[in-house]
Design a binder for these strands. Structure first.
Lengths: 330, 330
DNA sequence: GCGGTTCACTGAAACGGTTCACTGAACCGC
DNA sequence: GCGGTTCAGTGAACCGTTTCAGTGAACCGC
């Protein structure tokens, strides 16, 4: 045959074995048929190079055996690391994830979440850009969703691994305060609903409690862009930074280097999330560690359980932050 | 309605408008029907909250409007950056990519590539783990594939952005040789078919030409694992490293730091690929730069063209390497 | 030898769209 | 007033599975 040769269908296998398509379908899934038939069908399928079409299967059965991973912003190195970790852990469970990047855009997040649902993923892991968006509730009705980072407002998720951001923020700000800093620039990722997120509000509250003089600046996470924003903050006289993502802190390093300002001598930086690279810089980035491996394990456990069709349940794990002191705070 | 309420089908829209399902299908895609009907159908669809089911659509039409991105190993920070870049560029084209990670495993690469094809992605971007694998040829028959990094052996791809690895390797080794290094450990990512890849062979050839004493060691790209391998190489007495991915070079930094060996004083490191973080380390990592933005642009242009159903064509862009000297070579 | 199970399998209807071949009406020039 | 186009829309087949409700045969105990 010269052509790409259309792939075999279940009917051809049925014809070849003298069975009905239904029987073949059952046999290939090891259901309701005799061992002997199963073997016969399997052989015929092999011979014809038959493999079930996942699209047709999804349409008929409503399931796919896949998992979706919707990342809020893949520009964040930490989210990248998380995505990779989740991918590997799913591989160990003989599954794989379709990874999508909402690019920090709530509208896109909504579109992609729906898309994934329509693709019939069996379950979804999401790191929400906008956890307060109303569509989550509806989405969770028909699809098990595991949220990482923040709980989804008003939604019956299948599981949550949330960060105790209040504690994390307190840890960071107290550390800065303890080192004598009073005026702090908070560099926070561009977000859907600033500053009404609990974490952001908490920054302000804690700052008040500790007598800190805070300025909140939103910053993108791509290194070049973050560097630019950090540079402007440096130009504006800021010398102490609390970055709501290590990625952004790297931008502060770069901007400080450009201006030949030393860390921690002249500039102080704190990160948030603890990306592996943070330990490699000099000085190492002092940051707040969330135990990425633990998060991956927990999220994957929940999502696999849900995707396997386990009874609905609502696990909730609250991650406790840990201060990772490395020397970037003067 | 209390239930999640099943979503509307095209037949309901047809009923509501008094048209046939076919007419609705055409109308919603702006085909073959009067403006007036289009408007009427659109309104009814809106009213009913109708949205076409992508799975059913894919089954019937064989197309999805999506693009697949199959990464050889997402543990490589550079590949992560590439994936993010491609995602963003596709977003600007009103498309999105399903990202999959082959995790450096050729068997998984094959499975996932097939999976993506079966999912009816309109086109595929791939950074092959094993560009010599025979299945690529077959895959390219039915699906436009754009390869990044290496050309796919014997396959009619829709486009290629290949790296001139010979030039890159020469650049790196000559630089090391020029600085007086004779004994060099080459840390290369775990690969399918070592060392028969052209790039790897070329390392050996060039090493011979330059009179270098080479030892090739495979290393994973996750920081912790790379650090371990680098540590063993250091323990074995190696002091000059050429790493076939910046990610691995980071492992050398970490291992050197653990042993309190200074870079570039006591240990020399060269990377390959130029990840943004490489400029942030101190000393900066001397590496070979491939112009990631250019690669992203080229690959996305090719893939969008192919996904739009453009006439088959075989663009081929060869990236030229550039030495990015930063100070990690003694 | 009879009702009742179980077993292995079948037929046909979904699943929710797209597309092909066709139709009736309107319109054209001549 | 007639053949030929174009236009807007229809009906039914089709995409390749799964699944539901049967069905006939074999086997059961009694």
């Amino acid at each position: 045959m010269p052509q790409p040769r259309k792939r075999a269908t279940i009917r051809e296998v049925a014809k070849a074995t003298g069975l009905s398509p239904a029987a073949v379908s059952y046999a290939l899934r090891g259901l309701q048929v005799s061992e002997e038939t199963i073997e016969r069908v399997r052989r015929a399928a092999e011979e014809l190079g038959y493999e079930a079409d996942p699209i047709a299967r999804a349409l008929a059965s409503g399931r796919t055996g896949t998992v979706g991973l919707l990342c809020g912003s893949l520009e964040d190195l930490w989210q990248q690391a998380l995505a990779v970790g989740i991918g590997r852990a799913l591989k160990d469970n003989d599954r794989y994830a379709f990874i999508l990047d909402a690019a920090g855009d709530p509208a896109r997040e909504r579109t992609l979440a729906r898309q994934l649902r329509d693709q019939r993923v069996d379950a979804l892991i999401v790191q929400p850009v906008d956890p307060a968006a109303p569509f989550w509730a509806g989405l969770c009705e028909g699809l098990p969703v595991v949220a990482i980072g923040d709980a989804l407002a008003g939604a019956r998720t299948a599981g949550e691994v949330v960060f105790d951001n209040r504690a994390g923020v307190t840890l960071a700000l107290e550390h800065l305060r303890g080192r004598g800093h009073r005026r702090v620039a908070v560099l926070t990722p561009t977000r859907a609903s600033t500053p009404d997120r609990p974490a952001d509000l908490h920054v302000l509250a804690e700052a008040g409690r500790l007598g800190l003089d805070i300025e909140v600046v939103t910053a993108p996470q791509a290194l070049a862009a973050a560097t630019e924003v950090a540079g402007m903050a440096l130009a504006a006289g800021h010398r102490a930074f609390f970055c709501f993502a290590d990625s952004i802190a790297y931008g502060v390093y770069a901007a400080a280097a450009e201006r030949e300002l030393s860390i921690p001598g002249e500039v102080t930086v704190m990160g948030y999330d603890d990306h592996p690279m943070s330990g490699l810089l000099s000085p190492g980035l002092t940051t707040v560690d969330w135990d990425i491996d633990g998060i991956v394990r927990a999220a994957v456990r929940m999502v696999v359980f849900a995707a396997d069709g386990g009874p609905p349940r609502h696990d909730r794990i609250v991650q406790a932050p840990q201060l990772r002191e490395r020397g970037s705070v003067g």
